[in-house]
Nucleic acid binder design. Structure first.
Lengths: 215, 215
DNA sequence: ATCGTTTCCTAGTGATCACTATGGAAGTCG
DNA sequence: CGACTTCCATAGTGATCACTAGGAAACGAT
């Protein structure tokens, strides 16, 4: 992560004052971030395991040694693509925690998922939800990393609901764990529906249907 | 399918009268159905693409040529395993259509999914929902077959809801498509949650939360 | 016993997997 | 310029992928 920041600073040198040490040696011949976005789209469409390094290098316009030098290995490239996709897990958590109400947080999350699952210029479905659901034993550790990210988002939503319960904005008998679980299941499920062909209006209608469960 | 019936009749010959021609040649040395169930469990746990033929033959206790002779190829074995898992897609459709009310059909489907996703002796999650969400281009046709099965179940649920709307058992303004979509998204999502570690009580609580959206 | 039929295992096929050793090319420095 | 650093492409590595050719073995029928 630190090296990534350094590198992007170095790449921006032409437009910034010379206060950071310039890297010596041959500069990178490709746009690292553009290559990362390309990889993200491939993982998004075909999933982690079904996307081969050969697929990646072909789409990114680089050779395998360049990929490994720039991103480590397939696993780290994937995790970096997921981070790039989410815009940082912390940003999502803060977005949920900082919503005006738990209901707003829930609706915002569902609508964002529905829109993100059905973008015109992006693959259908959600990268986080769908790119690594089942896995070979080799990829199990990567799968678990993604599962942990999914649980963090669900936990953030649950915490926001609990806050509204404690503040009396929701009935005291409300079950925050099950409400968050339900909404997060809808997020996961909408991704599969999108991959199976559901369009944006369908998913937004599902959001309305799901929000009808709100107390 | 027909050959399967013939074969199982032939295998049951010891206990039935000699009205069916007995097969000549060396008999099958393994229990075809038990092998199918073993394959089903492997696909269930690891998904279609991550389960190799070598994994299958090792677990089934047979060699690759036996697998290919008995099941065709990996794709057909998988589809047969899915059919065995569902107990026949028609049975599911009839179950939904024949429920006492749309609400019963919905609740039954969700509870069956929650229980099936968290069996003690079976892998977590749902074979239909999780074994082939994303795929390589090679497996895209198989993925689409599974997607069609998923859509059939959702369509059966939607049809059952529409019937109750027409019969006045549900408010005339109800949107059957979105209600069915919501519930089916929960089914899909619960499978992912189960694979991510959610237990039976959690999923049953999610069912209650989702059913709270019922008019 | 012999024949026809079917299944059995051994031992592979070429293709693709993630990944890398090597050496030259392309830069920045003094 | 020459020294140093870093990235580049070529050309592979062994492992695993789905799948199968070929011949021996096990059956019912005769």
């Amino acid at each position: 992560m630190i090296s990534r920041v350094k590198r992007s600073i170095a790449n921006d040198m032409e437009s910034s004052p010379a206060q950071v040490a310039r890297r010596t040696g041959r500069p990178l011949s490709f746009d690292r971030d553009a290559a990362l976005v390309t990889a993200m789209h491939l993982f998004w469409r075909h999933g982690y395991e079904a996307t081969s390094v050969a697929d990646l290098t072909r789409a990114m316009g680089i050779t395998p040694p360049s990929l490994y030098a720039a991103f480590g290995d397939k696993r780290r490239l994937f995790l970096e693509a997921v981070d790039r996709y989410l815009g940082g897990i912390e940003a999502i958590e803060h977005g949920i925690a900082g919503a005006a109400s738990a209901r707003d947080a829930a609706r915002d999350l569902l609508v964002a998922a529905a829109l993100g699952d059905t973008g015109d210029d992006t693959p259908p479905g959600c990268l986080l939800a769908s790119s690594l659901v089942t896995s070979s034993p080799d990829a199990e550790a990567v799968r678990e990393t993604l599962a942990a990210t999914r649980r963090r988002i669900e936990a953030a939503l649950r915490a926001r609901i609990e806050r509204d319960i404690h503040e009396g904005l929701l009935p005291s008998g409300s079950d925050a764990e099950m409400m968050a679980g339900h909404l997060f299941a809808v997020v996961q499920g909408m991704s599969t529906l999108a991959k199976d062909g559901a369009g944006r209006n369908k998913l937004l209608g599902i959001v309305d249907s799901a929000m009808a469960a709100w107390p």
